[in-house]
């Protein structure tokens, strides 16, 4: 049986030839992402903005009366609701952010939720409430703080680990690649004003994990090749490392994508945002491992000479690992 080969054997693509233009583009994209986040802002869901989200089904109708509902809820004085289809045409999600007047009133979100649900139930006899999320201003503020802690702590802890396992240049490189991934994901959410919820934080941490997976595989190969080919110029050596790991990079990205894409199309509606963010992150993360994490090593002055003391350390670890198993 002939096996499938996604990447031809012995590829020799000069990935790093374009490192400067790609780096400039990436840095610009990072800047643009943050500009978008700061000017346009993120479209916070109830988790982070406070307020409430109702999922409901009109059991006797074919279509949900979205425009009518928008008027009815709009007149309640909580501002304009965001009403979207959520699955079938008669299934909807209604999101109302907490008005500013609710600041410092812990019960305001709950009171608002009760009023909206009871108004809807009065007006539509066939309405079935499938789910309600209500978050008060204080709790949503805590979620925001915790989300920031989680992201910053994860990035720093991971960079520290890489620094210990490899060299400081690798730690900086990995951190920069992660920063790139997180920034671009946030930028995408700001640009398209996609709902930004707790699930998206989970998605970003998953992206951090998998982008790093790629980065580590490439770095591991770089470390190995630095020991093997002492005389090879650094750019050539990085290109070789990326090419050698290319088949693995493509295959793993592909297995992740084929696992996730069914979830995107056939999975529960509530997971769409999470899945979409991770799917997007796989592309961004794969790119960043090659174009962000690798070239930065050149500029940070990694060479086979700077690795001489490290080499013996790695050898020792390997021997220890072999001795155990």
């Amino acid at each position: 049986m002939r096996l499938l080969k996604l990447v031809p054997e012995n590829t020799n693509i000069h990935f790093l030839k374009w490192r400067v233009p790609f780096y400039i583009i990436s840095v610009l994209l990072i800047a643009a992402s943050w500009a978008l986040v700061l000017t346009k802002g993120l479209n916070y869901g109830v988790d982070f903005a406070g307020g409430q989200e109702i999922r409901a089904t009109f059991t006797q109708s074919k279509d949900a009366p979205i425009a009518e509902l928008r008027d009815q809820i709009g007149t309640l004085g909580y501002g304009d609701p965001v009403i979207q289809r959520f699955g079938a045409p008669n299934e909807i999600s209604i999101r109302v952010a907490l008005p500013e007047s609710a600041e410092g009133k812990p019960g305001a979100a709950e009171a608002m939720s009760q009023k909206i649900v009871s108004t809807m139930q009065k007006n539509y006899a066939d309405l079935r409430v499938d789910g309600v999320d209500t978050v008060s201003g204080k709790v949503s503020g805590e979620f925001r703080i915790n989300a920031i802690y989680a992201l910053v702590a994860a990035m720093l802890a991971i960079a520290l680990y890489i620094w210990i396992r490899f060299e400081w240049q690798f730690g900086v490189g990995a951190l920069f690649a992660l920063f790139h991934d997180v920034s671009l994901t946030l930028g995408m959410f700001a640009l398209f004003q996609l709902e930004f919820s707790l699930q998206i934080i989970a998605a970003i941490l998953a992206i951090i994990g998998y982008s790093l997976n790629d980065t580590i595989v490439v770095y591991d190969r770089i470390r190995e090749n630095l020991k093997k080919y002492r005389k090879m110029p650094i750019v050539e050596m990085l290109d070789l490392s990326v090419n050698e790991t290319l088949a693995r990079t493509v295959m793993t990205s592909l297995t992740l994508l084929v696992a996730l894409i069914p979830l995107l199309f056939f999975g529960p509606e509530s997971l769409f945002g999470l899945t979409a963010a991770i799917t997007l992150g796989i592309f961004v993360g794969t790119y960043s491992s090659v174009y962000m994490a690798a070239p930065i090593l050149i500029w940070l002055g990694v060479s086979s000479n700077s690795f001489v003391p490290v080499e013996s350390k790695v050898d020792k670890q390997e021997k220890a690992a072999r001795g155990e198993s």
Binding site: F143, A150, A153, L198, A202, L205, L212, N213
Partner: peptide, 24 residues
């Protein structure tokens, strides 16, 4: 590479557990 990658993923996972809430 397998061990390094899994340990870093483990770090991200644990932090998500510590700072995350509810279903996340």
């Amino acid at each position: 590479a397998i061990y390094d990658a899994n340990i870093t993923n483990f770090i991200a996972g644990v932090l998500l557990f510590l700072f995350g809430s509810g279903p996340v």
